[in-house]
Design a binder for these strands. Structure first.
Lengths: 205, 205
DNA sequence: CCGAGATAGTACTGGTCGGTACTATGAAGA
DNA sequence: TCTTCATAGTACCGACCAGTACTATCTCGG
């Protein structure tokens, strides 16, 4: 049917529907493994609508990833907002991640997986992954500043290593162990630095 | 030409040639992006030789990854063997990795990228990636035992988080920064645990 | 009520890919 | 010498895919 009778004509909703389906499909099966026709069928949309909205499969991929990245960081910010700023909030991020790792459809970080699939360092997809990592750093840096921790930028970089390492290992192992280890390690690091902050000491090199 | 005149007929060499080419091609361009015909041409082999030796593209991929994994761990073991066992050898691993990150054709961990591309948790490729991670853990655990560090298994798990996190971030950022941060963090952790070992203390939870 | 635009569905095209079959050739062992 | 096997090269097949074109039908603003 061209346009279902009684359906409100809502281009924005069509776009959102396509994005929602493609986000799940690309994440669960991989970008190369999902065809535009697959997405059109699952979204009850036409290929024409997809190409009208996104120009190409590459455009759809980029829009999907940008959307997801934004959604992830909004999720992290909103779901840790109730925690006291500083150390608790940083650990809250790790708690959220561990819960995520435990979900049945967890497949690792979508941005990192997409970048791994492309393997071209100067691609738009890789740039999106880079921005995704930077958003993590920005958020963590703010948290650490609120905890009055010295050198928050460097500390944020180290926490990001823990996060991405735990994410990829949990995905491959199919276990939350790495996530819980990363959380414990972050806890220990924060305790040491907290202590040094009280003593007026420096971050250990 | 069917068989080049003067060429020794060496099936094992043909197999190695195909593996060598496919290893580079899959690593640099991704598994889905490289066709069997591509590999045949680059290896100056025929598709028939590839299917005779490996049965299918999937078989070639698995053989390639298994070969690479073994080569990586042999490289790590051999190139840290000259270092005093224990802490120095662990840090030597990080030094090797940072040098690797700086290479122009560095594209992250091939096993992890392959698993990210497949996205099927019960695939043979993912199982190979899992074995790759376990080999890291075994090697690190041995190093830590030689350093008389308590709870070497847990410590190895944490070091592996640092390694894989730094590897993926360095690949996406196109920088060795994450690798150097991971090395510094490992150094700090080893210093703390070393100190505790001397004092007879326990690993901080 | 009319025209413009949105939309699902279908069909098609040019290209690529995994895999198979076949050929021509030569090396190696009996 | 003769048979067996390895091998590169070529051609082919069926499937799939990105992207385009077209149709039929609906909504919505004026």
């Amino acid at each position: 049917m061209p346009v279902r009778s009684g359906d409100a004509l809502d281009p924005a909703a069509t776009r959102r529907r396509i994005l929602s389906i493609s986000e799940r499909a690309f994440y669960e099966r991989g970008i190369a493994a999902v065809s535009v026709a697959d997405i059109a069928e699952a979204a009850a949309a036409s290929k024409a609508s997809i190409y009208k909205n996104f120009g190409s499969k590459e455009g759809l991929v980029e829009a999907t990833l940008a959307d997801r990245s934004e959604r992830v960081h909004r999720w992290l910010a909103e779901d840790t907002a109730h925690l006291p700023p500083g150390r608790d909030r940083v650990l809250g991020v790790f708690d959220l991640l561990v819960n995520w790792y435990a979900e049945a459809d967890f497949r690792g970080c979508a941005m990192v997986s997409a970048a791994a699939e492309e393997r071209v360092s100067n691609s738009t997809v890789t740039a999106l992954a880079r921005r995704h990592l930077q958003a993590y750093r920005d958020f963590l840096t703010t948290c650490l500043q609120e905890a009055n921790i010295s050198n928050p930028g460097q500390f944020a970089n180290r926490l990001l290593i823990l996060i991405e390492g735990a994410t990829i290992i949990s995905a491959i192992d199919g276990s939350t162990d790495a996530g819980r280890e990363a959380r414990a390690l972050a806890d220990a690091l924060l305790a040491v630095v907290d202590h040094e902050a009280v003593d007026g000491g420096h971050v250990r090199r």
